[in-house]
């Protein structure tokens, strides 16, 4: 299994993400700089990590979404390669048009940094197959712009098609319908604000994020 973690100027969860992928899935995991126009061959997973790419200039994720590497990520996603975007990675995926909607400033204006309860809404995807439908998990969030917005038709379609992967158990940031994570139509792209890579072993305060990575092993190998 081979994985790539994309690094943008201002990414800061890239190494944590690479460690989580490497330790849990055993994948040969490469860090790939955003100026690279081509990705390594034969990737089984692409991760877009959290951070503050380009200092959140213009809009969170807006500049990174137009980086050279993103054309390769979009092409790989089109071929069915699993793409996981966490936090700033989720913002980048929406800005790149790989996922619908947008992530706006938290409704309370404040940066939210704490462990939150999530409900697993769809346990059928490549990323969530290690969880049970309706299961409650605890995963940390750390963001200023996590307030998910999409028009009500889009939200209805997402819910109807089972594309809401995770929902906050309570209002965390004003997100429409408490949506915390969204899948692409084909199901191989997941964007989520909470950080599963920060909850993979007891020393991190819990391991509820671990099964997301474990689920990918079986899917891919």
């Amino acid at each position: 299994m081979r994985a790539a973690v994309i690094q943008f100027p201002g990414s800061n969860c890239d190494r944590d993400m690479a460690v989580a992928i490497r330790n849990i899935t055993g994948a040969e995991t490469k860090l790939v700089w955003h100026r690279t126009a081509e990705l390594p061959d034969g990737l089984d997973l692409i991760a877009i990590p959290g951070g503050f790419s380009y200092g959140d200039y213009l809009r969170s994720g807006a500049m990174a979404a137009r980086s050279p590497v993103m054309q390769a990520v979009i092409a790989a996603a089109g071929r069915g390669v699993p793409v996981l975007g966490v936090c700033n990675g989720f913002q980048i995926l929406t800005e790149a048009g790989l996922l619908p909607g947008a992530l706006m400033r938290n409704a309370g204006i404040r940066f939210v940094c704490r462990t939150v309860a999530l409900t697993v809404e769809n346990s059928q995807s490549a990323f969530t197959r290690g969880y049970a439908n309706g299961e409650k998990v605890r995963i940390p969030v750390a963001h200023h712009d996590g307030n998910y917005f999409a028009d009500s038709d889009t939200l209805d379609r997402l819910e109807g098609d089972g594309r809401v992967a995770f929902r906050y158990a309570e209002d965390v940031n004003g997100s429409a319908r408490n949506i915390a994570g969204v899948l692409s139509a084909a199901g191989n792209v997941l964007g989520m604000m909470p950080h599963p890579e920060r909850m993979t072993e007891a020393v991190q305060g819990g391991s509820d994020g671990r099964r997301l990575f474990e689920g990918l092993i079986h899917q891919i190998a």
Partner: peptide, 9 residues
């Protein structure tokens, strides 16, 4: 449309 505005919002 390509960069300066996010047409979703």
């Amino acid at each position: 449309t390509k960069l300066l505005a996010n047409m979703v919002i």
